[in-house]
Protein backbone atom coordinates (compact mmCIF):
# COMPACT_ATOMS: atom_id res chain seq x y z
CA UNK A 1 0.00 0.00 0.00
CA UNK A 2 1.46 3.34 -0.96
CA UNK A 3 -0.02 6.76 -1.52
CA UNK A 4 -1.02 5.79 -5.05
CA UNK A 5 -3.31 3.09 -3.69
CA UNK A 6 -5.33 5.92 -2.16
CA UNK A 7 -5.97 7.40 -5.58
CA UNK A 8 -8.12 4.69 -7.13
CA UNK A 9 -11.42 6.54 -6.68
CA UNK A 10 -9.99 9.79 -7.99
CA UNK A 11 -8.51 7.95 -10.95
CA UNK A 12 -11.85 6.31 -11.72
CA UNK A 13 -13.53 9.68 -11.44
CA UNK A 14 -10.89 11.48 -13.49
CA UNK A 15 -10.09 13.86 -10.64
CA UNK A 16 -6.32 13.51 -10.94
CA UNK A 17 -4.00 15.89 -12.77
CA UNK A 18 -2.37 14.51 -15.93
CA UNK A 19 0.84 13.90 -13.99
CA UNK A 20 -0.98 12.09 -11.20
CA UNK A 21 -2.89 10.06 -13.78
CA UNK A 22 0.34 8.97 -15.46
CA UNK A 23 1.87 8.07 -12.10
CA UNK A 24 -1.23 6.11 -11.12
CA UNK A 25 -1.30 4.21 -14.40
CA UNK A 26 2.30 3.20 -13.86
CA UNK A 27 1.38 2.17 -10.34
CA UNK A 28 -1.53 0.09 -11.69
CA UNK A 29 0.87 -1.97 -13.75
CA UNK A 30 2.82 -2.81 -10.62
CA UNK A 31 0.05 -3.18 -8.06
CA UNK A 32 -2.20 -6.21 -8.55
CA UNK A 33 -4.46 -5.08 -5.69
CA UNK A 34 -5.25 -1.76 -7.35
CA UNK A 35 -5.71 -3.21 -10.80
CA UNK A 36 -8.10 -5.83 -9.48
CA UNK A 37 -10.01 -3.21 -7.49
CA UNK A 38 -10.28 -1.05 -10.59
CA UNK A 39 -11.60 -4.00 -12.55
CA UNK A 40 -14.06 -4.69 -9.76
CA UNK A 41 -15.28 -1.08 -9.82
CA UNK A 42 -15.83 -1.33 -13.55
CA UNK A 43 -17.75 -4.54 -13.24
CA UNK A 44 -19.85 -3.43 -10.29
CA UNK A 45 -20.86 -0.17 -11.96
CA UNK A 46 -21.67 -1.69 -15.35
CA UNK A 47 -25.41 -1.68 -14.83
CA UNK A 48 -25.73 1.73 -13.21
CA UNK A 49 -26.18 3.72 -16.45
CA UNK A 50 -29.47 1.87 -16.94
CA UNK A 51 -30.84 3.70 -13.91
CA UNK A 52 -30.99 6.78 -16.13
CA UNK A 53 -34.45 7.89 -17.05
CA UNK A 54 -35.15 8.08 -20.72
CA UNK A 55 -34.61 11.69 -21.78
CA UNK A 56 -36.04 13.24 -24.92
CA UNK A 57 -33.29 13.43 -27.46
CA UNK A 58 -33.20 16.89 -29.02
CA UNK A 59 -34.49 17.02 -32.56
CA UNK A 60 -31.59 17.52 -34.89
CA UNK A 61 -28.95 15.94 -32.65
CA UNK A 62 -28.37 13.11 -35.08
CA UNK A 63 -28.18 15.53 -38.01
CA UNK A 64 -25.60 17.58 -36.11
CA UNK A 65 -23.48 14.56 -35.30
CA UNK A 66 -23.51 13.38 -38.90
CA UNK A 67 -22.75 16.88 -40.17
CA UNK A 68 -19.63 16.88 -38.01
CA UNK A 69 -18.70 13.45 -39.26
CA UNK A 70 -19.15 14.47 -42.87
CA UNK A 71 -16.98 17.52 -42.30
CA UNK A 72 -14.15 15.38 -40.89
CA UNK A 73 -11.09 14.89 -43.01
CA UNK A 74 -10.46 11.23 -43.58
CA UNK A 75 -8.11 10.08 -40.88
CA UNK A 76 -5.28 7.64 -40.89
CA UNK A 77 -6.67 4.74 -38.96
CA UNK A 78 -4.45 1.83 -39.87
CA UNK A 79 -3.01 1.89 -36.37
CA UNK A 80 -5.67 3.40 -34.20
CA UNK A 81 -4.20 5.22 -31.23
CA UNK A 82 -5.23 4.03 -27.82
CA UNK A 83 -5.47 7.46 -26.31
CA UNK A 84 -8.02 9.97 -27.40
CA UNK A 85 -6.79 13.00 -29.22
CA UNK A 86 -3.80 11.47 -30.92
CA UNK A 87 -5.28 11.11 -34.35
CA UNK A 88 -3.39 12.81 -37.09
CA UNK A 89 -5.65 13.64 -39.98
CA UNK A 90 -4.04 13.05 -43.32
CA UNK A 91 -4.82 15.83 -45.73
CA UNK A 92 -6.24 14.91 -49.08
CA UNK A 93 -6.22 11.20 -48.54
CA UNK A 94 -8.55 9.48 -50.90
CA UNK A 95 -11.80 8.69 -49.21
CA UNK A 96 -12.29 5.06 -48.58
CA UNK A 97 -15.18 3.48 -50.33
CA UNK A 98 -17.91 2.61 -47.94
CA UNK A 99 -18.42 -1.09 -47.66
CA UNK A 100 -21.69 -1.82 -49.34
CA UNK A 101 -24.50 -3.53 -47.58
CA UNK A 102 -23.80 -6.90 -49.06
CA UNK A 103 -20.49 -7.08 -47.25
CA UNK A 104 -22.18 -6.09 -44.05
CA UNK A 105 -24.71 -8.84 -44.47
CA UNK A 106 -21.94 -11.25 -45.27
CA UNK A 107 -20.01 -10.23 -42.20
CA UNK A 108 -23.09 -10.67 -40.15
CA UNK A 109 -23.49 -14.18 -41.46
CA UNK A 110 -19.86 -14.92 -40.69
CA UNK A 111 -20.38 -14.04 -37.12
CA UNK A 112 -21.85 -17.15 -35.66
CA UNK A 113 -23.86 -15.14 -33.31
CA UNK A 114 -26.73 -16.89 -31.68
CA UNK A 115 -28.95 -13.94 -31.43
CA UNK A 116 -31.53 -14.11 -28.71
CA UNK A 117 -34.87 -14.17 -30.37
CA UNK A 118 -36.29 -11.04 -29.00
CA UNK A 119 -38.63 -8.51 -30.41
CA UNK A 120 -36.45 -5.68 -29.25
CA UNK A 121 -33.30 -5.13 -31.22
CA UNK A 122 -31.58 -3.32 -28.39
CA UNK A 123 -31.95 -6.35 -26.16
CA UNK A 124 -28.92 -8.16 -27.29
CA UNK A 125 -26.54 -9.41 -24.72
CA UNK A 126 -23.55 -10.86 -26.48
CA UNK A 127 -24.29 -14.53 -26.09
CA UNK A 128 -22.27 -17.38 -27.46
CA UNK A 129 -20.65 -15.41 -30.15
CA UNK A 130 -17.33 -15.90 -31.74
CA UNK A 131 -15.56 -12.64 -31.48
CA UNK A 132 -14.51 -11.82 -34.96
CA UNK A 133 -12.12 -8.96 -34.80
CA UNK A 134 -10.93 -6.90 -37.67
CA UNK A 135 -7.30 -7.99 -37.85
CA UNK A 136 -6.33 -6.01 -40.89
CA UNK A 137 -7.75 -4.34 -43.92
CA UNK A 138 -6.67 -3.12 -47.32
CA UNK A 139 -8.11 -0.77 -49.82
CA UNK A 140 -7.77 -2.16 -53.32
CA UNK A 141 -7.18 0.40 -56.03
CA UNK A 142 -7.77 -0.01 -59.76
CA UNK A 143 -4.68 -0.87 -61.75
CA UNK A 144 -5.78 0.82 -64.94
CA UNK A 145 -6.24 4.52 -65.15
CA UNK A 146 -9.83 5.65 -65.36
CA UNK A 147 -11.21 2.38 -64.03
CA UNK A 148 -13.82 3.29 -61.39
CA UNK A 149 -13.71 -0.09 -59.65
CA UNK A 150 -12.67 -0.32 -56.03
CA UNK A 151 -12.76 -2.82 -53.22
CA UNK A 152 -12.08 -3.31 -49.58
CA UNK A 153 -10.47 -6.41 -48.17
CA UNK A 154 -11.00 -7.24 -44.51
CA UNK A 155 -9.15 -9.87 -42.57
CA UNK A 156 -11.24 -11.10 -39.70
CA UNK A 157 -9.81 -13.14 -36.91
CA UNK A 158 -11.43 -14.90 -34.00
CA UNK A 159 -8.11 -15.70 -32.40
CA UNK A 160 -7.73 -19.14 -33.92
CA UNK A 161 -8.76 -18.76 -37.54
CA UNK A 162 -8.89 -16.02 -40.12
CA UNK A 163 -11.24 -15.16 -42.95
CA UNK A 164 -10.64 -12.86 -45.85
CA UNK A 165 -13.66 -10.83 -46.95
CA UNK A 166 -13.45 -8.87 -50.16
CA UNK A 167 -16.13 -6.48 -51.24
CA UNK A 168 -15.90 -4.74 -54.59
CA UNK A 169 -17.98 -2.29 -56.53
CA UNK A 170 -18.03 -0.66 -59.97
CA UNK A 171 -16.41 -3.77 -61.41
CA UNK A 172 -15.96 -4.14 -65.16
CA UNK A 173 -18.30 -6.49 -66.99
CA UNK A 174 -17.21 -10.08 -67.35
CA UNK A 175 -17.46 -12.09 -70.53
CA UNK A 176 -19.07 -15.50 -70.48
CA UNK A 177 -17.11 -17.96 -68.43
CA UNK A 178 -14.99 -15.36 -66.72
CA UNK A 179 -14.79 -14.70 -63.02
CA UNK A 180 -13.00 -12.47 -60.56
CA UNK A 181 -10.24 -14.25 -58.68
CA UNK A 182 -8.85 -12.93 -55.39
CA UNK A 183 -5.15 -13.53 -54.69
CA UNK A 184 -3.02 -12.99 -51.63
CA UNK A 185 0.71 -12.62 -52.04
CA UNK A 186 3.84 -11.64 -50.23
CA UNK A 187 7.33 -11.89 -51.62
CA UNK A 188 6.50 -15.42 -52.72
CA UNK A 189 4.00 -16.84 -55.17
CA UNK A 190 0.39 -15.63 -55.21
CA UNK A 191 -2.23 -17.93 -53.72
CA UNK A 192 -5.84 -17.98 -54.86
CA UNK A 193 -8.15 -16.85 -52.05
CA UNK A 194 -11.71 -16.96 -53.31
CA UNK A 195 -13.47 -16.22 -56.58
CA UNK A 196 -16.74 -14.51 -57.41
CA UNK A 197 -18.87 -13.12 -60.20
CA UNK A 198 -20.27 -9.63 -60.00
CA UNK A 199 -23.90 -8.77 -59.73
CA UNK A 200 -25.70 -6.81 -62.43
CA UNK A 201 -24.65 -3.60 -60.69
CA UNK A 202 -20.97 -4.46 -60.84
CA UNK A 203 -20.67 -5.32 -57.17
CA UNK A 204 -19.30 -8.52 -55.76
CA UNK A 205 -18.40 -9.99 -52.41
CA UNK A 206 -16.59 -13.11 -51.37
CA UNK A 207 -15.30 -14.55 -48.15
CA UNK A 208 -12.56 -17.13 -47.97
CA UNK A 209 -11.11 -18.96 -44.97
CA UNK A 210 -7.40 -18.38 -44.56
CA UNK A 211 -6.02 -21.72 -43.45
CA UNK A 212 -2.51 -22.23 -42.16
CA UNK A 213 -1.11 -22.62 -45.69
CA UNK A 214 -1.63 -18.92 -46.26
CA UNK A 215 0.96 -17.75 -43.76
CA UNK A 216 1.82 -14.07 -43.90
CA UNK A 217 1.03 -11.89 -46.88
CA UNK A 218 0.94 -8.20 -47.47
CA UNK A 219 -0.80 -7.74 -50.80
CA UNK A 220 -4.24 -8.61 -52.10
CA UNK A 221 -5.15 -8.47 -55.77
CA UNK A 222 -8.12 -9.29 -57.97
CA UNK A 223 -7.70 -10.57 -61.52
CA UNK A 224 -10.10 -11.73 -64.21
CA UNK A 225 -9.69 -15.42 -64.91
CA UNK A 226 -11.40 -18.09 -66.93
CA UNK A 227 -11.09 -20.66 -64.20
CA UNK A 228 -11.29 -20.55 -60.44
CA UNK A 229 -8.33 -21.34 -58.21
CA UNK A 230 -5.58 -21.53 -60.81
CA UNK A 231 -2.06 -22.01 -59.43
CA UNK A 232 -1.04 -18.58 -60.73
CA UNK A 233 -2.87 -15.63 -62.26
CA UNK A 234 -3.19 -15.59 -66.04
CA UNK A 235 -5.62 -12.74 -66.62
CA UNK A 236 -5.33 -8.99 -66.15
CA UNK A 237 -5.03 -7.46 -62.67
CA UNK A 238 -8.05 -5.28 -61.95
CA UNK A 239 -7.50 -4.23 -58.36
CA UNK A 240 -4.64 -4.46 -55.90
CA UNK A 241 -3.69 -3.08 -52.53
CA UNK A 242 -1.44 -3.60 -49.53
CA UNK A 243 -2.36 -4.37 -45.96
Amino acid sequence: MNENCMRLIDYFNRALTPEETAAFEQHLAECPACSSELEELRTLTEGLPYLSEEADVPAGLKANVFAVIDAQPDVHDEEPPHQAGNVTPLPEKRRRPAIPLLAAALLASLVTNIFLATADRSAEPAVEQRNWELADKAELAPQQEGDPSNAIALILSDGSSRDLVVDAENLPELSDGELFQVWVLDAGAPKPAGAFRSSGEGTGTVSHPLGSKFGAFDTIAITIEKEEGLPAPEGPIILAGSL
Binding site: L101, A126, W132
Partner: peptide
Protein backbone atom coordinates in the same frame (compact mmCIF):
# COMPACT_ATOMS: atom_id res chain seq x y z
CA UNK B 1 -28.57 -5.97 -40.49
CA UNK B 2 -30.75 -4.47 -37.80
CA UNK B 3 -30.04 -7.53 -35.72
CA UNK B 4 -26.33 -7.53 -36.34
CA UNK B 5 -24.47 -7.55 -33.05
CA UNK B 6 -22.69 -4.46 -31.78
CA UNK B 7 -19.20 -5.83 -32.21
CA UNK B 8 -19.73 -6.54 -35.90
CA UNK B 9 -21.30 -3.16 -36.51
CA UNK B 10 -18.41 -1.53 -34.71
CA UNK B 11 -15.91 -3.46 -36.83
CA UNK B 12 -17.63 -2.24 -39.98
CA UNK B 13 -17.97 1.29 -38.67
CA UNK B 14 -14.26 1.39 -37.90
CA UNK B 15 -13.72 0.59 -41.59
CA UNK B 16 -15.78 3.66 -42.36
CA UNK B 17 -18.98 1.81 -43.16
CA UNK B 18 -21.38 4.65 -42.68
CA UNK B 19 -24.50 2.53 -42.61
CA UNK B 20 -23.13 0.27 -39.89
CA UNK B 21 -22.10 3.34 -37.94
CA UNK B 22 -25.54 4.84 -38.33
CA UNK B 23 -27.18 1.67 -37.06
Amino acid sequence: MNHTDDGTLYGLASSKDRRAFEL
